[in-house]
């Protein structure tokens, strides 16, 4: 509940302050956001599975973001930045889909 309130608060804050993304962060932010979303859906699924832990959520969230940003950074350095970004997005997208499917099975028995 409290993280959900935090999310709403963050969205409100963003709408209010209208932030500009600094240039050095621009390649990493979209991937980081997808990774964080993956962590959030994973957390919801873990709640439904009865194995949720705040600590695991925080650590997985941070590690997801860092690893995603690092992969993009590495890809940029190696000259395969856009392809690697696409790959990361595909992987995270598949994970999000599977998590959502599991959540759906839990909540709607379908």
């Amino acid at each position: 509940m409290i993280p959900a309130i935090g999310l709403a608060l963050g969205i409100m804050l963003g709408l209010l302050l209208q932030p500009a993304v600094p240039v050095w962060l621009q390649p990493y932010l979209p991937i980081a956001v997808i990774a964080a979303l993956d962590a959030v859906f994973g957390a919801v699924r873990a709640i439904l599975d009865g194995i949720f832990s705040d600590k695991v959520f925080v650590v997985s969230f941070l590690s997801n973001v860092v690893v995603a940003a690092f992969i993009v950074f590495l890809g940029d350095k190696l000259g395969v930045g856009s392809q690697l970004s696409t790959g990361v997005v595909v992987v995270l997208g598949v994970r999000i889909f599977s998590n959502v499917a599991s959540i759906r099975r839990h909540l709607f028995d379908a």
């Binding site: 935090g6 999310l7 709403a8 608060l9 963050g10 969205i11 409100m12 804050l13 963003g14 709408l15 932030p19 500009a20 993304v21 932010l29 979209p30 980081a32 956001v33 964080a36 979303l37 959030v40």
Partner: peptide, 8 residues
């Protein structure tokens, strides 16, 4: 996360 989503 919310802030980052809106920013992006």
């Amino acid at each position: 996360l919310g802030f980052a989503i809106i920013a992006q």
